[in-house]
Simulated scan of single mutants.
Amino acid sequence: MSPETLSLEYALAVLNVLGLPALFVVFVMKGALVGKIFPTSVFLSGYVAITTPTYVGAITIIVLVTVAHVIGQFVVYTGSRRYGEQIVSSIPYVDLDPSSDRFQRVDDWFTRYGGVAVFGTNVIPWSRGLIAIPAGVSSYPRRRYLVHVGTSTLLYHTVYVAVPLLGLAMLA
């Protein structure tokens, strides 16, 4: 066996052992707006393409990253419910000013559409997670928030896991 093949097999073995716990941590951070420092969707699709999980494995990945992301968003929601919009100033690696146009746009969407905005912004890549702040500040009901975030995040992550699997299936 060549050294390159052995190195690749070793790397895949490490990825299979540490991959799911690492995904969990990365997506909790992503949900808490900390993971915005790198494209986690590309990371997720790459992980799926490299590990080529079974359907049960793919479902496990989808559920894991969805639960992790929802936990992260719920932390921001709960923090903003308690401390207000200024919670964003205490989140590391987040450069978001509550008086910025982007933040005001998300706040306006939430004010106008409520739960539909919570669902919708969680399936649009550039706005995911920000809605947690106006939802928390307005004391939007926790259960409704979790239902909207959970279903939209599940849909979003299903697409990012299914696309590489379908691509690999088409190549086979």
Rank of each mutant, 00 (worst) to 15 (best):
P134Q: 14
Y140G: 06
L12E: 04
T121D: 11
Q104A: 14
Y83M: 12
F24G: 04
I71L: 11
G46I: 10
A162V: 07
G120N: 08
D108P: 03
F119D: 08
V14E: 05
A169Y: 08
G115C: 11
S45G: 15
S138F: 08
R105S: 12
L168N: 04
L155H: 01
I133D: 10
F110C: 11
T5Q: 10
V56M: 13
Y83Q: 06
L171C: 02
T5I: 07
V56W: 12
L168Q: 07
A58C: 08
G136F: 07
N122P: 08
T51L: 12
V42Y: 12
Q104N: 13
V14Y: 02
P164C: 07
G31N: 07
Y10H: 08
I62F: 04
A13P: 00
A58K: 06
V123A: 08
D108L: 12
L44N: 10
W126K: 07
T121C: 13
V65H: 10
L166A: 14
R128Q: 15
G115A: 15
G35K: 05
W126E: 07
I61N: 04
S99F: 05
Y160N: 08
S45R: 07
P98W: 02
L23I: 03
T121S: 13
Y156A: 04
T60R: 05
A13C: 00
M170S: 09
D97M: 11
G46A: 15
V17G: 01
V17W: 08
R81T: 07
Q73P: 00
V17R: 07
P125G: 05
T78Y: 15
T54Q: 10
P141I: 08
V65A: 04
L23N: 04
T51I: 14
G46L: 12
E9A: 11
V65Q: 09
G31P: 01
P21H: 05
G136P: 14
V28N: 00
F27G: 00
